[in-house]
Design a protein around this nucleic acid. Structure first.
Length: 447
RNA sequence: GUGGUUGUAGCUCAGUUGGUUAGAGCGCCUGAUUGUGGUUCAGGAGGUCGUCGGUUCGAGACCGAUCUUCCACCCCA
């Protein structure tokens, strides 16, 4: 017990039962991505440090897993403590590696380029519930188009993927970075945009007075805070809120642009409709990543104490950092691990056994075994998942193995059945048994 | 990175102010049932109490360190 091995903190092993469910999530999200025209790519687990550093803000840099160099470089690093000696790091998300990918392969890509990517990422964070140091992201991004149709498309993708998974109470929050810039502009604190957004983003958590306090602590002038204050009293009606913010942002060109963009997205979605998602304009939604420039998305499962399950937004300058200007991009990310936790909590997983064994043959001894192996080969050639119990153990033990593994059908082929050339089939769920011809059995398994 | 919290059988947890051989339920194994699982009954196995060190005649319990879990901050999927 004490000597038991374990995995590093914030990482996990996944047992078959869990993998079945995880793959269900991945497959569902993937099929929605494909439906909307996204193509798969993968990038390496590690990137050059210079590719990642400086893209996620100061806090982000701290959370990037750096890879210890080898040999002489390692010695030098230990002696000098100079982090510049670290040449490689594990990817922190899929967006920045994608930006690098686009710049690197720009001549091979057909723009607008729509890609999806489902891979794990690592963060040197303090683990908590729903927060891991290794987790999967399912990203879809499009680069090379500033069309707002993609923002609309991503709202639809969120809705379709999460609805298909069985979630029925979740909110897609949407805002626009330009609105935040506009607010900062008309309140005269453009140079404190980040301080302002970080503070007002916490409205849900710490309430109006908490935000005011934090704004004050961040040296936002009192008159500016008073101008911001009406934002804290927005209601439920998206159109009404949009009108309010439009009035408030009169005189700010960038702010009006943000309103215009949001209005387009909201109007389109209004026409197209959503399955289960609620779309909510939240002018206090900020998100930490400093590369967003337009729309910002965040998805929350309602009534659950777990962080956001999806994020996303538009970034005009991301590839610019790697030397390719004028490439607007917009993308979203599904947090598969948190979606798993949410579905687990709400008991939303369907019975998942279609990937598993469909039929198990009981082993009655050598002669029967040899006969069954031939039959199993035929079934497998026809695409049926089949297996045989590996030894002539007691029936009870063999049946229990099938039962525990959730195998729906058991074939009992003894000398009598071999003589009669029939398959005696037991259905474990009902306990019923019947004799089938081998052709009938195959039909049943394929149907 | 800061502050707090948790760790006893495969799992969920009891374990009184430190005192002999550390318990329960579920699960697991065996048998009743040598061609029938999920029900029932009977029996059985399994723990150096996260790890290392300290205090004590004596530590699962107290102290320290460390790892882990969860929580708040920070940040985020």
């Amino acid at each position: 017990m004490a000597q038991k091995p374990s995995v590093p903190k914030g990482t996990r092993d996944f047992l078959p039962q869990t993998m079945l469910r995880r793959n269900h999530i991945f497959n569902t999200i993937k099929s929605v991505f494909v439906k909307f025209g996204y193509a798969p790519i993968e990038t390496p687990a590690m990137e050059k440090t210079e590719t990642l550093l400086g893209k996620y803000g100061e806090e982000g840099d701290r959370l990037i897993f750096k890879i210890m160099p080898r040999g002489r470089k390692q010695t030098k690093l230990m002696e000098s403590g100079d982090l510049k000696m670290v040449e490689e790091a594990l990817r922190y998300d899929l967006t920045v590696p994608f930006a690098r990918f686009v710049v690197q392969h720009q001549n091979d890509l057909n723009f607008p380029f729509k890609r999806y990517q489902i891979q794990n990422v690592w963060r040197a964070d303090q683990p908590q519930n729903g927060r891991y140091r290794e987790f999967f992201q399912c990203d879809a991004d499009v680069v090379g188009s500033d069309s707002l149709l993609f923002e609309v498309e991503f709202v639809q993708i969120y809705d379709e993927a999460l609805s298909t998974l069985g979630l029925d109470d979740f909110t897609i929050k949407i805002n626009n970075r330009k609105i935040l810039s506009g607010i900062a502009e008309i309140t005269g604190i453009s140079d404190q945009l980040i301080d302002m957004t970080v503070a007002i983003d916490k409205l849900d958590k710490i309430g109006e007075e908490g935000v005011v306090k934090e704004l004050t602590e961040r040296n936002i002038p009192a008159d500016a805070i008073e101008k911001i204050r009406p934002l804290f009293h927005f209601g439920q009606d998206n159109q009404e809120n949009l009108n309010k913010i439009q009035t408030m942002l009169e005189g700010s060109e960038i702010g009006q642009k943000g309103v215009e963009e949001l209005r387009f997205i909201l109007d389109q979605i209004e026409v197209l409709g959503l399955r289960q998602a609620k779309l909510e304009l939240d002018v206090t939604l900020a998100r930490g990543l400093n590369y967003y420039t337009g729309a910002i998305f965040e998805v929350k499962a309602n009534n659950l104490n777990i962080g956001s399950i999806c994020g996303g937004g538009r970034y005009d300058d991301l590839t610019g950092i790697f030397g390719l200007k004028g490439m607007s991009g917009v993308g979203i990310s599904f947090g598969a691990d948190r979606i798993y936790d949410v579905m687990n909590e709400l008991d939303l997983f369907p019975k998942l056994s279609q990937d598993a064994t469909q039929i198990m043959f009981v082993n009655f001894g050598e002669a029967e075994q040899n006969f069954c192996l031939k039959k199993i080969k035929e079934l497998r050639d026809a695409g049926v998942n089949a297996e045989i119990y590996p030894s002539n153990a007691k029936m009870k033990k063999q049946m229990k193995y099938a039962d525990d593994k959730g195998i729906p059908m058991v074939a009992l082929i003894g000398s009598q059945e071999m003589t009669d050339n029939v398959a005696k089939i037991k259905y474990l769920e009902t306990g019923e048994q019947e004799d089938l011809s081998w052709d009938e059995l195959l039909k049943r398994l394929k149907g």
